[in-house]
Design a protein around this nucleic acid. Structure first.
Length: 111
DNA sequence: CGATTGACGTACG
DNA sequence: TCGTACGCCAATC
């Protein structure tokens, strides 16, 4: 069984579940998937998210600080912030404002 | 097969 | 508050 593959798909699935106008963190997703400390694997999965047919809203995934650490990996660095602002999320200095309230933790929201 | 890297997070000083 | 160090695990060199 391709463990890594299911892990990637699982990450994409969770990311798609992030409601519009909300954001999540790599660590929160990692913990929900059971990887726990391996939040890097979530980011690594995101690296391949561009190739996914169902478009993955990777712009809704930021680090635990609410900083757009992955903006540079988008087609255009500013695209990520534009998408977030388009959904009603305020971004300043590559950082999500009021992130604490906007943080969408799957381990909590999904139960 | 060993060393390096990385869209992270926590710990320590 | 900020910078450095370490762990985590898979992919890449």
């Amino acid at each position: 069984m391709k463990k890594t593959e299911s892990f990637f798909l699982d990450v994409y699935e969770v990311v798609r579940l992030i409601p519009k106008g909300r954001v999540s963190s790599y660590g929160a997703i990692a913990r929900y998937l059971g990887t726990g400390k391996s939040a890097r694997m979530v980011g690594w999965a995101m690296n391949a998210a561009h190739d996914q047919k169902p478009k993955v809203p990777a712009h809704r995934v930021v680090n635990r600080n609410g900083m757009l650490s992955g903006k540079m990996h988008f087609s255009d660095p500013d695209k990520m912030q534009q998408l977030l602002e388009k959904e009603g999320i305020t971004v300043n200095d590559d950082q999500v404002i009021n992130f604490s309230s906007l943080c969408w933790d799957p381990s909590i929201e999904l139960g």
